[in-house]
Structures are given as structure tokens and as C-alpha cells.
């Protein structure tokens, strides 16, 4: 009996994982089906765009700026080992736009937006506000989930674009003020080196990460257990799931775009 206990535990874990994937898949399909069917709550969508997009700009800007600056310092120091200090503009550009921009913005959004969405919806569930919505003939998925998911999917490419630009600017500022690069040559190298695919893949990644971040917040909020502990657990689980899924999606998208 004891010999099979680890196998039984493993089986339970696998079953739980499969069940969780199934629940998330059904939730995702349900959300997508409501996106294309009315009624549409435009006011809630605009509110979500302001909350998720506009109010995330400071944290996105600061994160990208410091990362771009640190990246320039690292590449300069690392490049000096084989006389390749001159590649700082190109590596900062490609590093920020292809990888660090979308991933860091995605993770910051997971921290800021996923947590707040999960906590808000979980609290609504605990205080019977979700039930109240239903009794008021309003579908909670349409009213709560769809506006947040659509807003995050729409504004994330913009946030990533802003993050990319500020990140490159951070690298530019450190390179020209601290490392002695020529300003116009730095900008010219950056512009010349970037390709359309770099930018488009970055923005597409942003849209996917935004979808994941908002969806996880809504899913865990809607499925929260009762009480303050339930809200806390839902928030924590939502942020963890969003962060892991964003990193996994980043790998898959990078493989798709740049594996050739």
C-alpha cells in the first residue's frame, strides 16, 4: 500500500492539473464567445482601458528605462572582453524590442493588473455582488471579464511599444552620457538595425500577454473561495499563473518568430 502511495499522489496531481487546464480552457472559450456576442458594455471597456493602460504607464516607463540603462552597461562591460563595445546600440535595441520590453511589461502588468482584477472580482464574489449581477439580468462574464480582457489585449501592444521606446532611450542615455557614445551615431545604429519583424513580434507578444494577464485575473477572481483568505489565495494564484503563462507564451512565440 505504501509503495503505491507516491504513484497515487502523482496521479492525483496529474488529474488535478488536467482538470484545471480543462476549467481554464472552458473559461477562455466562454470569454471568447462573449467577445463576439452582444450586448457590449462600452463604458466598462473604456474604464478598463484607462485602468489597465493609462495608469500602468508610469510603472512600465520606469521599468523599461532602468532595464535599458542596465542593459547598456552590461553589454558594454561584456563586449569589452572581446573588443565589441560598439555593439551596444544594436544589442540594446534588439534585446529591448524582441525580448525584455514585452516580457517585462507583461510581468509588470501581471503584478499590477492581474492582482487587482483578481482581488476586485474575488471580493465581488465573496460579497455576493456577482450573484447580484445575475439577478439584475447581467451576465458577469460579459460585464466583468470581457471588458477587462479586451482592454488588456488592446492596450498591451501600446504599453509594450512605449516600453520599447523608453527602454531604448534608457540605453541611449547611459551610452551617450556615461559610456561616451556619439548620440546621432547611436540613434542611427538603433534605427538601421531594427527590422519590421522585431517590432511586430514585440507588439504581438504584448497583445498575447495582455490577454493572459487579464484572463487569469478574471478566472481566479470568479473562482475564488469564500472569505478574506479566499480572496488572498485567488490573487496570489492569479499572479503566479499569469507570470508563468506569460513566460511560457514568450518562449513559444519566440520559437515561432525567430526559429528559422
Amino acid at each position: 500500500m505504501k509503495l503505491t502511495a507516491p504513484l497515487a499522489a502523482l496521479g492525483r496531481a496529474v488529474l488535478a492539473l488536467v482538470a484545471a487546464i480543462g476549467r481554464v480552457s472552458i473559461f477562455t472559450a466562454n470569454t471568447l464567445s462573449h467577445i463576439v456576442r452582444g450586448p457590449f458594455y462600452v463604458r466598462e471597456l473604456l474604464g478598463s482601458i484607462i485602468q489597465i493602460g493609462y495608469f500602468s504607464l508610469p510603472v512600465v516607463g520606469l521599468t523599461a528605462f532602468f532595464t535599458g540603462g542596465a542593459l547598456a552597461l552590461q553589454i558594454f562591460a561584456g563586449g569589452a572582453r572581446f573588443n565589441a563595445e560598439a555593439v551596444v546600440p544594436q544589442i540594446v535595441a534588439i534585446g529591448m524590442v524582441r525580448e525584455l520590453g514585452p516580457v517585462l511589461v507583461g510581468l509588470m502588468i501581471a503584478a499590477r493588473v492581474t492582482s487587482s482584477v483578481a482581488a476586485e472580482i474575488a471580493t465581488m464574489k465573496v460579497t455576493e455582488q456577482i450573484d447580484a449581477l445575475v439577478t439584475l439580468s447581467t451576465n458577469p462574464t460579459k460585464y466583468l471579464t470581457v471588458p477587462r480582457v479586451v482592454a488588456a489585449t488592446l492596450v498591451m501592444p501600446i504599453l509594450v511599444g512605449v516600453g520599447d521606446i523608453i527602454g531604448v532611450f534608457g540605453g541611449y542615455l547611459v551610452s551617450t552620457q556615461r559610456l561616451g557614445f556619439n548620440a546621432s551615431a547611436y540613434l542611427q545604429n538603433t534605427v538601421d538595425f531594427l527590422e519590421f519583424t522585431d517590432i511586430s513580434s514585440s507588439l504581438l507578444k504584448g497583445a498575447v500577454f495582455g490577454f493572459i494577464a487579464a484572463l487569469m485575473g478574471c478566472y481566479y477572481g470568479m473562482n475564488s473561495a469564500r472569505g478574506a483568505q479566499g480572496v488572498g489565495q485567488a490573487t496570489k494564484a492569479a499572479v503566479v499563473a499569469a507570470a508563468v503563462l506569460i513566460l511560457a507564451a514568450n518562449f513559444v512565440l519566440t520559437e515561432v518568430f525567430f526559429s528559422a
Partner: peptide
């Protein structure tokens, strides 16, 4: 509802008129 279940993000009149502001 037992605890009122009022929507925190809406004003009192918007809570009361919730059904009158949307839907059929």
C-alpha cells in the same frame, strides 16, 4: 442580499438604477 451586495464602483443611484441603465 444579506450584505446589500451593492457595487462599490458605482454611485448609489447607479446601483439602484442598474437594471434601468442597461439591458431590456
Amino acid at each position: 442580499f444579506q450584505g446589500g451586495a451593492l457595487f462599490d464602483s458605482l454611485s448609489v443611484w447607479q446601483n439602484v438604477a442598474f437594471r434601468l441603465l442597461r439591458g431590456s
